[in-house]
């Protein structure tokens, strides 16, 4: 508990999380206003099912004095904590708060003018969002992967003659994304087993253990020189990568 304080671990963490992950401050203020309107003027069902849960969450999992223990207990990780903010029904609080306030107004023109004013405010806030949406474009590459990776994958799939070739990539990012490009590839654990600082002996041992059909390494990597020392020669190459076939 040394050095622990509710302020350092709780308030600042919550403030940072809300600032990073949640709605712009303007909407948080509107949601708070909606909450107070529902508590003060709303019907019982609104108080029970919108206001109570919100207050409940701020007293429990979003309470700066409580949640540090919640995180340390392992119930939710610090990285995933922002997801607890999804429990707060911001949109419903604002919308229902507006309806609640409108129903305290005189029926007819005043109420309609109020609805119109709210829609205008929402419309103004929608402008930046609409501008962003207008700028959205489909990517030219639907796989959203590296061009070098696509070239290597295409070569292996076209030339291997194997239905589901097993491939060892020394680039960890490729190991994680190659199957997003083609599910026909199986990814070998060769380099995870051999490690980044592998020696020729370690590489030889791993090759005997894993038997990948293809090995893809960066041109400047140590692995390329180890494979050369083991008597393997590259079958193909791109600007940055060498492709070896393991027999």
């Amino acid at each position: 508990m040394t050095g622990y304080s509710a302020y350092e671990s709780g308030f600042s963490f919550l403030r940072k999380t809300i600032r990073l992950y949640e709605q712009p401050g303007f909407f948080l203020v509107l949601a708070a206003a909606g909450l107070f309107l529902i508590i003060l003027l709303g019907m019982q069902s609104g108080r029970l099912f919108l206001a109570f849960p919100t207050v409940f969450f701020f007293l429990t999992v979003l309470n700066p004095f409580v949640f540090p223990a919640f995180i340390r207990g392992g119930a939710v990780s610090g990285e995933d904590y922002y997801r607890l903010l999804w429990l707060i029904p911001y949109g419903m609080l604002i919308a229902f708060g507006t309806i609640t306030l409108a129903y305290r107004m005189k029926k007819g023109l005043p109420r309609n003018i109020f609805y119109l004013a709210v829609l205008v405010v929402l419309g103004i806030t929608a402008v930046p969002s609409l501008k962003t949406m207008a700028d959205l474009r489909l990517p030219s590459d639907i796989y959203m992967t590296d061009e070098q990776l696509q070239m290597v994958c295409n070569y292996i799939i076209d030339e291997s003659g194997i239905d589901e070739p097993e491939v060892a990539f020394d680039n960890e990012e490729y190991r994680l994304s190659a199957r997003e490009y083609s599910a026909a590839l199986r990814i070998s654990h060769l380099f995870e087993d051999a490690g980044d600082t592998a020696s020729v002996q370690a590489m030889n041992k791993s090759l005997r253990a894993w038997h990948p059909d293809f090995i893809v390494v960066r041109k400047e990597s140590d692995a390329a020189s180890y494979l050369d020392e083991l008597g393997m020669s590259e079958e193909a190459y791109t600007r940055e990568y060498l492709v070896y076939r393991h027999t």
Binding site: L20, Y21, E22, Q23, P24, F27, M43, S45, G46, F49, L50, Y82, L85, W86, I88, Y90, G91, M92, I94, A95, F96, T98, I99, A102, Y103, Y115, V118, L119, L122, G123, T125, A126, S129
Partner: peptide
């Protein structure tokens, strides 16, 4: 919540959907 009133519930739903589009950030609900 409004006791089965048609007009306010429809207006509430319109506000709600507009708010969803205007108030969103990458990781918000």
């Amino acid at each position: 919540l409004t006791g089965e009133k048609r007009v306010p519930s429809a207006i509430g739903a319109i506000f709600y959907i507009v708010l969803l589009f205007t108030s969103r950030t990458s990781f918000s609900s």
